[in-house]
């Protein structure tokens, strides 16, 4: 963890953070670095340790070993100063079924002794409005659907302006419309300067709303960085369309690539497709095209496809992400 970037550069940082339940490691020596202002996707299959990590970050559970800093303060020592700046949804929403949605929010708001009473009613209304629950504000939570409870849980995190939002699988139980709303809500919060730490087991979700990603697998943080860095770390693929397949294959092999025929358009009249996976960044795409042209290969089409993140994550975690979706 670098001091050079200043104490305020990271919203969350952990060092060797571990949590064991008995002999089992639920979180295994992870070093998280969540930059301020980022939308950080905390991605991992079910049971990979996302919720446990979040409990540690919020001081709900004590680490077995390792250190945590949130918003520049140590956790759990600095929790009293940290938590008022943090809105959180942890392991799904939880409310008093015999109270209305608005009464539940008022109750949780009074629990925060820094929350001003004078603006309470207005803030509750506004939070309900933001998640589209105004119409159900007076309804008992007992009568809420799972999706409505999830929205109310997000509203609770938004009761006050926050520096950091920690959202544990916020789209669970939401329909596609609700999922889209959460995504745009997260974007607008991030645009307002809030750091958002959002966990998910769905890759597509993270790809659509996050700037940074951390990938969990069986308690370990197996990758971390910007979305772009993670994509780049994967193997890109080149798609080449040409009638001169044999010549092209020779050129590509000469560049250290591994061409293989691809697609169904393999006939000499319309040109064939070659697909090739360069190892890392050894050859820039423009150099490949130049080499092909220099060798007299007629290039009908050329493209670089990023490796799908899906493949990258499957290779990192050994699991498909849509399985549990």
């Amino acid at each position: 963890m670098s001091d050079t970037s200043g104490p305020d550069a990271l919203a969350i940082e952990t060092l060797g953070l571990s949590k064991r339940f008995g002999r089992r490691s639920a979180v295994d020596s992870i070093n998280l670095a969540v930059p301020r202002g980022s939308v950080f996707g905390f991605l991992g299959p079910n049971g990979s340790g996302k919720t446990t990590t979040i409990r540690l970050l919020l001081g709900l559970a004590a680490p077995s070993s390792g250190g945590i800093r949130v918003l520049g303060r140590p956790v759990p020592a600095g929790l009293a100063a940290v938590l008022p700046e943090v809105g959180a949804l942890v392991e799904g929403p939880a409310f008093y079924p015999f109270l209305s949605g608005a009464a539940n929010l008022r109750r949780l708001d009074t629990a925060d002794r820094h929350a001003p009473r004078s603006t309470r009613a207005a803030r509750v209304d506004e939070a309900l409005e933001r998640v589209g629950l105004s119409h159900a504000a007076g309804k008992k939570v007992r009568a809420y659907s799972l999706g409505m409870k999830q929205r109310l849980g997000i509203a609770n995190a938004l009761l006050r302006p926050r520096e950091l939002l920690v959202l544990d699988e916020p789209t669970n139980g939401l329909d596609p419309q609700g999922t889209r709303e959460v995504r745009s809500l997260v974007r607008s919060l991030a645009a307002g300067g809030t750091t958002v730490f959002v966990s998910s087991h769905l890759l597509a979700e993270v790809e659509q709303m996050c700037t940074h990603v951390g990938v969990m697998s069986v308690g370990k943080l197996v990758a971390q960085g910007t979305l772009r860095e993670l994509r780049a770390a994967g193997t890109a693929r080149i798609m080449l369309r040409t009638p001169d397949i044999a010549a092209a294959a020779r050129v590509l092999s000469g560049l250290g690539l591994h061409p293989e025929p691809a697609g169904v358009l393999q006939d000499t009249d319309h040109g064939g497709l070659l697909s090739t996976s360069p190892p890392g960044h050894t050859v820039a795409p423009e150099d490949i095209v130049a080499a092909l042209v220099a060798a007299g290969v007629r290039v009908q089409g050329f493209g670089v496809e990023d490796a799908s993140l899906e493949e990258r994550f499957v290779s990192l975690t050994g699991e498909g992400f849509d399985v549990a979706g």
Partner: peptide, 17 residues
């Protein structure tokens, strides 16, 4: 109910609660 975690992250404070 699960509300304990939300009271504590509010934060209610464990001793105060």
């Amino acid at each position: 109910l699960g509300t304990l975690r939300y009271l504590l992250v509010a934060p209610a404070g464990r001793v105060r609660l």
